[in-house]
Design a binder for these strands. Structure first.
Length: 287
DNA sequence: ACGATAGCCTGATAGC
DNA sequence: TGCTATCAGGCTATCG
């Protein structure tokens, strides 16, 4: 369920409900979710801590605990948070539960068990993985054409694949990458190092535009009715190409095509997003 | 460093 | 209906 707009929507819901809550007990039913530290340490360190803020970095949710720890959670493909009563039966897809002093219980639900959590000391949370490996937030003022051009310079991979690289721009996933490429009139297989400055301007502007619009709609919900407690995204109604195979392109009416790029389903309009003619291989002598 | 591929998991759906 | 193959909003490990 999560790209940046969905994670941010979850963050807002959690912020309303858990800030100020003190952790009484932590339950871990599937230990691989806890990446660091050990499950025992994870439970012990969290006990008695109060959540003082909910932050986000890229697709990572950050529970700020007093002045001591950051609890990082990544929803990966299908991670979701729900509130339950402590007495409610634990479903086979609930892997971690946080019981608060108030009696409220927050449960981490993840069908495919791909999600991960880290509990890190607050002071070095941003200096170590995973947060130190993240690129720029889409609205970062230093996300510029020069930055993208230099990031793409050595990359011959398709731009679709490189948009998903979280160490360049963080927060873009498979849905919004397709939308950004459509808005930027870019053929998904175009090698990243062939993009022009103008293309980079378009990517920067369209990334912010589509993410802002998705955010305003509470994100995109496909395949699941509720992506997390109280989260019902509506942006799926405004998608231009993603998951629209065989439908008409809203710009030109051509049939939208689905291909596979870097193993990911990729949708585009063959008319609006043309493959570029190969540039003549003559080296420019000018310097 | 880059790029390709497999792997992690489970469930829904398409196609025979 | 029932089986099998494929696909799914993400990322990491491994190998060349």
């Amino acid at each position: 369920m999560p790209e940046l707009p969905e994670v941010e929507t979850v963050r807002k819901v959690l912020e309303k409900k858990v800030v100020g809550e003190k952790i009484k007990e932590v339950y871990v039913y599937y230990s691989k979710i806890i990446e660091e530290p050990s499950v025992e340490e994870f439970k012990e360190k969290l006990k008695g801590k109060t959540i003082t803020a909910m932050d986000r970095r890229g697709k990572w949710l950050i529970f700020v605990l007093d002045d001591t720890y950051y609890l990082l959670t990544h929803l990966r493909m299908e991670g979701r948070f729900f509130f339950r009563n402590h007495d409610d039966e634990v479903s086979r897809h609930e892997h971690v539960a946080f019981l608060f002093e108030s009696g409220l219980e927050l449960r981490y639900n993840d069908t495919r068990k791909f999600g991960r959590m880290y509990l890190l000391n607050k002071d070095d949370a941003f200096k170590v993985k995973p947060l130190n490996e993240l690129g720029k937030e889409p609205w970062d003022k230093t996300l510029t054409e020069d930055y993208l051009l230099s990031s793409y310079k050595m990359r011959r991979l398709p731009i679709k694949t490189v948009l998903l690289d979280q160490s360049i721009i963080t927060g873009i996933g498979n849905i919004y990458a397709d939308e950004i490429l459509k808005m930027s009139s870019l053929y998904p297989l175009t090698p990243a190092n062939e993009l022009t400055r103008r293309d980079c301007t378009n990517i920067i502007n369209n990334t912010k535009e589509v993410l802002n619009k998705a955010l305003a709609s509470g994100g995109t919900t496909i395949r699941s009715y509720e992506s997390s407690e109280g989260v019902h995204g509506r942006f799926q109604n405004q998608l231009l190409v993603h998951s629209k195979e065989g439908e008409d392109c809203p710009s030109c009416g051509s049939k939208i095509v689905k291909i596979r790029v870097g193993g990911r389903g990729t949708y585009y309009c063959p008319n609006c997003q043309r493959e570029r003619a190969k540039e003549a291989k003559t080296k420019k002598v000018k310097k």
